[in-house]
Computed example of a mutant assay.
Amino acid sequence: MSTDAANGDSDPAVTVTPAAAEEALSLLEGEGMDTDVAGLRLFVQQGGCAGLSYGMRFDTEAEEDDTVMEFHGLRVFVDPASRNYIGGSTLDYESGLQAKGFHVENPNVVSECGCGESFRT
């Protein structure tokens, strides 16, 4: 398992905004998960009109080959294959009048589908 420190690594797999970390931690605690070991897994999977889509879920612990980072108290797990697609991305949480939820800002995307749910690099 590799570990990237949020403030010490010049090339983290992803970054997480304070708003996203706060919301994810609240949801983790609501599920009764131990935030000292559990975390948010951010991954890429096949699917959607553009070919790839983002996935997120809570995991009780990291896998052996995960990159593990911590942002604002939130542990984030990224597997090696997903890191190739989302390296340099930022996870944010928006709660506006028209949209509420997590959003990945990915500098590697060359095109997205019309609904914004899938992408191509």
Rank of each mutant, 00 (worst) to 15 (best):
Q98A: 04
T90I: 14
F58C: 03
E64D: 12
G55D: 11
G88L: 13
G48H: 02
F43W: 08
V37I: 13
L91D: 00
S111V: 09
T67P: 01
L97G: 08
V104T: 06
M69D: 02
G39A: 08
S95T: 02
G55Y: 13
C115R: 05
A62Q: 12
D65Y: 14
A81K: 14
D66W: 02
C49A: 15
N108Y: 06
D79H: 03
V44W: 05
V44P: 03
L25Q: 05
A38Y: 04
G39K: 02
G96P: 00
G96V: 07
H103P: 00
F71T: 00
D92K: 11
N108T: 06
K100I: 03
T60S: 10
C49S: 09
Y93D: 01
Q45M: 15
E70W: 01
V37D: 13
C115Y: 04
V78S: 01
E64R: 11
R75M: 05
K100E: 15
L42Y: 02
Y85F: 15
G30Q: 08
A62V: 08
M33P: 02
L40D: 03
T67I: 12
G101P: 06
A38P: 03
Q46N: 15
G51S: 13
S26T: 12
G48Y: 06
E29R: 12
G114E: 10
A81R: 14
V110C: 01
R75K: 15
C113M: 09
I86D: 00
T35S: 13
M33E: 12
G87I: 14
Y54F: 06
D65A: 13
L42T: 00
G39D: 06
E94I: 15
V110N: 07
R57K: 14
R57P: 01
G88Y: 08
E112Y: 09
E31H: 11
G55S: 10
E70K: 05
P107Y: 05
D66T: 03
V68N: 06
G87K: 13
G48F: 02
G96Q: 06
E61R: 12
S82F: 08
T90D: 07
E112D: 06
F102Y: 10
K100S: 09
E105G: 00
V44T: 14
G55K: 09
S82E: 05
T35Y: 07
V44Q: 04
G48K: 00
M69I: 00
E94P: 00
D79S: 05
E105V: 14
D59E: 15
Y85D: 09
Q98V: 11
M69Y: 00
P107H: 03
V78T: 07
C113L: 03
L27K: 13
Y93S: 01
R75V: 04
L25P: 06
D79N: 14
G39F: 05
K100D: 11
S111C: 11
F77S: 03
N84V: 15
T60A: 13
A62K: 12
A50L: 10
